[in-house]
């Protein structure tokens, strides 16, 4: 990752309190979470998105092939939705895996840095997961002739994963003691991440049939343009994920800064109060 890696455990430096107050020049503060790196990243993402759209709608062919008995089958134009659906799904899973990883490291090292990574990643994961479900439903209608298929393992697993992390975010949105929240949220995230394989297995055993492409790449009768478009999709979503993660992380970091600032002021006020009282008596 880029710049924010320099920041290690912002909580563990109460000693810097004094000069922080001396500066206190909030008026000329910056007004965004952007930096040179993220600007480049952002433009690259947007440019990539345009390229992706061009490839998805114009260059890549529609999915159709002839079976042995002469019928023409395939997803036809609907395949173009997969260039959004598949990368979003993959990076939703990546995001949740990162949340699980960040939570484990948080419990181990107790550095708020990793807690912010976990929280940020979960939020992005929920957005991507929502997009996955939405496009999946829209794609299923023309191709499977049904909006939703309970017999399908991946779609059910993904919905559950979505709900688990919606719950995680709901937990995090309730204001409470910050360290306890971070600790308990980490536990929730780890359980949630561990649930993925369990849910997946159980849904698969549940109904031993599945509509889903066993492996999307295999089924898509890999034509060069199709594969290339999918790869572009992965690249664009990778950049997008990184951009979102960095910005969201900085939001979390700023929120903690504000909290720390409030804490230091509260501490100062409280000490003044103590001194005043001592003077009186």
């Amino acid at each position: 990752m880029t710049t924010p890696t320099e920041v290690e455990n912002p909580r563990s430096e109460p000693a810097a309190a004094a000069d922080f107050f001396a500066v206190n020049s909030i008026a000329d503060a910056s007004v965004s979470t952007g930096s040179a790196t993220t600007k480049v990243l952002g433009w690259l993402t947007l440019a990539g998105l345009v390229v992706l759209l061009v490839f998805a709608f114009i260059i890549s062919p529609e999915d159709s092939r002839e079976t042995a008995d002469g019928a023409i089958i395939g997803q036809f134009d609907a395949v173009r939705l997969l260039y959004l659906h598949v990368p979003a799904a993959v990076f939703a899973y990546v995001a949740f895996a990162l949340t699980g990883l960040g939570s484990i490291i948080y419990l181990w090292k107790r550095s708020r840095w990793w807690d912010h990574v976990a929280h940020s990643s979960a939020e992005i994961g929920v957005v991507f997961c929502g997009v996955t479900l939405l496009t999946g439903v829209i794609w299923g209608r023309p191709v499977w002739n049904t909006w939703w298929e309970w017999g399908d393992v991946r779609i059910v697993t993904t919905l559950l994963l979505f709900l688990i992390f919606v719950g995680y975010l709901a937990f995090r949105s309730v204001p409470s003691e910050p360290r306890r929240q971070a600790r308990n949220a980490s536990v929730l995230a780890i359980i949630g991440a561990l649930n993925i394989p369990v849910v997946n297995r159980s849904v698969e055993w549940w109904e031993n049939r599945t509509l889903h492409q066993q492996s999307t790449l295999e089924e898509l009768k890999i034509e060069d343009a199709t594969l290339l478009t999918l790869m572009i999709g992965f690249a664009v979503f990778g950049l997008m994920f990184l951009w979102l993660l960095i910005h969201r992380f900085r939001v979390a970091w700023l929120a903690e800064e504000v909290e720390q600032h409030g804490l230091k002021q509260a501490l100062r006020r409280r000490r003044e109060e103590a001194q005043r009282e001592a003077m009186v008596s």
Partner: peptide, 27 residues
């Protein structure tokens, strides 16, 4: 959806960074 989310992150970041001294925004 993704665009709206990205925008909301930027807006949140802007609102918060006004309340934090420049010296603490290390990026």
């Amino acid at each position: 959806a993704i665009g709206a989310y990205a925008l909301s992150v930027l807006v949140r970041g802007r609102a918060l960074s006004k309340r934090v001294p420049l010296s603490r925004q290390r990026w």
